[in-house]
Amino acid sequence: MPGPVAELGPLHRVDGSAAYSHAGYNVLGAVTGPVEAQRRDEIPDEAAVDVHVRPATGVGSIKERHLEAIVQSTLRHVILVHQFPRSLVQVSLQVLSVPDTSLMAVPLSSRLTTLALLPALLQTAMHALLSAALPLSTTFTSTLVCVTRGADGGGAIRASPDPECLADAASAHAVCYSAGGELLMDMSEGDFDVDEWDAAMGVGRRICCGEKGGRGGDAVMRDEESESLQDKLRKLVAER
């Protein structure tokens, strides 16, 4: 599977923007800020972070609101909001396309499709924030990891799985790690125990930060090259 492709600054009316595509997910992100906040959004001692997720087709619904809430709470802790009291940082994420699941025998549950979109949204938001040059406490990267159980009970861990693999998986975890290797966010779905979770986090961490932290299951499979997402991010920004 080809690695993620990102472009910084494709839009010209906003302060920062990024186009990100990985594993069939295409997302366009834009950041405006810090700008003057409206009275009702104003927070006295910090900047308000406003996240909008818009689906590829149709109007936003509960699923998008849920994703917005997760992305918002992650970004709020990364952006140095206390430096810009009473202002607003607006993040818009437009989903352009998601993998086609219409040919699958068993359609993915809506909870899994929601979860699978999350890493792409977080990655796009991070790229757009870097493009906007907003002061951040750290950068972060995010990936999706899923645990597949074999017939003998042994587990296999896969990163950035395709929809078929995701449908077979016992559990899926969207993880987000800071540049320092700290876990910023984890959304897990499905049936798993502590050991499996621990192993999945290890793989997720290695993909995000490239450190030797993972003690995976029986067969740890990685689709990525040796380069971690963090390295890729760094390289992209350096090129700019």
């Binding site: 009316r13 906003v14 923007s17 366009l28 405006t32 700008v35 818009s92």
Partner: peptide, 15 residues
């Protein structure tokens, strides 16, 4: 046909 402006196009557009 559904058209909706987002702040992505211009900061002046409000959700």
């Amino acid at each position: 046909i559904v058209t909706e402006f987002s702040p992505m196009a211009s900061p002046a557009f409000e959700v």
